[in-house]
Design a protein around this nucleic acid. Structure first.
Length: 585
RNA sequence: GCCCCCGUAGCUCAGUGGAUAGAGCAACGGUUUCCUAAACCGCAGGUCGCAGGUUCGAGUCCUGCCGGGGGCGCCA
């Protein structure tokens, strides 16, 4: 039961949710018990359609149209709907009454959360995302994890949950012997000037090249790993330098990208090292662990290798070393027992699926994930170039994230310069930052995350279509109305929809909490993107057909209020995606 | 060989077991003394990869194929 708690509290201002809540108990009583979903959905045929009569009629063995009629005649909908009609095999098409829409809109307009309620049963959600490697460049592969994770953090927080961000950086393991030796060879100051300025690739590559060329360097590196793992003080000082230089660099990227990650969120591989022996001991004690080919392993059922034999999760290598399976298991223990996580999200690429399934399976077998605790792999696909292959730079290397972001801002700046020359240099720079970064993020968030997507500058920066600039522009247009309205001493008032375009816009505004819920429940930010795009389209239709400043009295006050609510909804929705909404552009 | 993911309009993508599968872009045709035309309206465009099955009802669920991508023991 505990894991059936809704992640987003049912909206009290969404008429679809109200109808659903109203009919649920009635249907349940009619069916003689059990939870019955009225299956209320937005409809092309009316404001909404109720589909629940069909499956229930089947269950009760009665005629679906008769049951639909019975539902209509029950009077349950009388105060919410101005029209109800039984259609087809047993659908009920409903039209919400304008007075209900008006009062709900006025209520939402006065709610700083726009109808989104705080979870009454807040969960503790750990979000594992970004995870760059120390002394290695951040590339487009980190973009997806960082951007999707950031959006999820913002959405869960907005829904009232306690969210713990964890940046599981790669700061431990075999390569660090080599990296520390290279640091010593270069001298710390030289290394600092390179790493600090974001030239991580050449540092790593140089170390790697030396490693493959020089046996002497290899030997030093091996010894250095031993020193590092043995807790040698001088080695740890050097290692700390290396980590600090990298994380400082990561922070500049996070700042440019506008994500919430800070140093307090760092929870690298190294942090779990001390927990590994105990993790192993607990596996041993549980009787799950066995030995295979010299390694300590656990065989979770249902996984097989190339030859069809059981596939082990290796928790201790033949050499005695721990690996990422061990640390991921230690991670589960830490998150459940120290952080008291209810829900653990792993924003990690799709190729890791089997590994994570095995880790979760073993953690479950060991009893480390009790009832009510769940772990979800929030998987994502690749970023592709226009050749439909993994995005690469012209030289064939992976694209540095910083280069990609600065190009986005440059492209946005020239677009803004062309379209709005009246902005000052500093205004243009600010706006270009919001548009450029927003475009990159939105392109990443607006399609189903599990699919690959094609990275296309022209499409993501277009001011038409399902893009961030389009949404930002819709917002900026509304804000410009209020700059003028301020001069006229007019203000927003109670909302009363009359025209079809007003009504359609108003209804969509009321479904903002449902859109957030949809996105959250499937950990799919693109559902929120789709909602915001449709909202922006409905706004432009409204703005086309319904004069705002040129209307008068209550109508103008109502339309101004609709404009204001739309701007706030766009801004809030974009904010949940980690995207800024400029006042002008 | 086994397992996972993806396949929807020319292109990029939405689509919660519900009615006639929708947007955007591109193309075509319109709208401009009008609040930001960076817009809007219209028109066209589909064997939802293929074949079975479950269901009152399948793009959606199940099975098998085809095509693309990925994974499959001591790196993370």
């Amino acid at each position: 039961m505990s894991n059936k708690r809704p992640l987003v509290e049912t909206s009290l201002t969404d008429p679809i949710a109200l109808v659903s809540a109203r009919l649920g108990p009635w249907l349940s009583q009619r069916a003689g018990g059990g939870d019955i979903d009225a299956v209320v959905r937005p409809s092309d045929h009316a404001d909404a359609q109720i589909n629940g009569a069909l499956p229930l009629a089947k269950q009760l063995g009665c005629n679906p149209r008769d049951l639909a009629t019975e539902i209509v005649d029950s009077g349950q909908l009388a105060d919410l709907c101005s029209e109800t009609e039984v259609a087809g095999p047993g659908f009920i098409n409903v039209t919400f009454s304008n007075s209900v829409i008006n009062s709900l809109l006025t209520e939402v307009a006065n709610d700083e959360h726009l109808g989104l309620r705080q979870a009454s049963n807040a969960r503790t959600v750990v979000v594992d995302y970004s995870a760059p490697n120390v002394a290695k460049e951040m590339h487009v592969g980190h973009l997806r994890s960082t951007v999707i994770g950031d959006a999820l953090v913002r959405m869960y927080t907005a829904a009232g949950h306690r969210v713990i961000r964890e940046n599981h950086i790669g700061d431990w393991g075999r390569p660090f012997g080599m990296l520390i030796e290279h640091l010593l060879d270069l001298g710390e100051e030289v290394a600092a000037s390179g790493l600090g300025q974001g030239d991580l690739d050449s540092f790593y590559k140089a170390a790697n090249a030396k490693f493959s060329e020089s046996e002497e360097f290899q030997e030093r590196s091996r010894q250095r790993v031993v020193l590092l793992q043995g807790g040698d003080e001088e080695t740890h000082v050097l290692w700390n330098r290396l980590v600090a230089m990298s994380t400082e660099y990561f922070n500049t990227v996070y700042e440019q990208l506008g994500v919430l990650l800070v140093d307090d969120d760092l929870m690298g591989e190294s942090k779990y090292q001390p927990l590994m022996p105990e993790t192993l001991a607990r596996l041993e004690a549980s009787g799950l662990m066995s030995e295979s080919e010299g390694a300590k392993v656990v065989f979770p059922p249902g996984f097989t290798n190339r030859d069809g034999d059981p596939l082990p999760l290796i928790v201790q290598a033949r050499t005695g070393g721990f690996n990422y399976a061990t640390s991921d298991l230690a991670c589960v223990i830490d998150r459940v027992e120290r952080l008291h996580a209810d829900l653990m999200l792993y924003v990690i690429g799709a190729p890791q699926q089997q590994h994570l399934e095995m880790v979760f399976a073993v953690a479950n077998m060991a009893g480390w994930m009790p009832d009510g605790v769940s772990a979800i792999h929030v998987a994502f696909g690749n970023v592709l170039g226009d050749d439909k292959k993994m995005l690469r730079s012209r030289s064939g290397e992976s694209v540095k994230l910083v280069d990609l972001l600065s190009e986005a801002v440059e492209r946005a700046a020239s677009a803004v310069e062309e379209k709005n020359p009246s902005l000052s240099d500093s205004e243009r720079a600010d706006v270009a930052q919001m548009i450029g970064i927003g475009a990159v993020k939105y392109a990443d968030l607006s399609t189903d995350r599990v699919r690959d997507y094609v990275f296309d500058w022209d499409r993501m920066l277009a001011f038409d279509g399902n893009t961030s600039p389009y949404l930002q522009y819709a917002h900026a247009r509304i804000r410009s109305i209020f700059r003028r309205a301020a001069d006229d001493q007019v203000s927003a008032g109670a909302i009363a929809v009359h025209e079809a375009a007003e009504r359609a816009l108003g209804l969509r505004l009321l479904s903002y909490p449902a859109a957030v819920a949809d996105a959250l429940e499937s950990n799919s930010p693109h559902r929120l993107c789709t909602y915001l795009f449709e909202l922006a389209q409905l706004f432009t239709a409204f703005y086309e057909h319904c004069p705002v400043m040129k209307s008068e009295g209550d109508i103008r006050a109502s339309r101004l209020a609709l404009c204001d609510l739309t701007a706030r909804t766009l801004s809030a929705g974009l904010d949940l995606l980690g995207i800024d909404a400029p006042e002008q552009m």
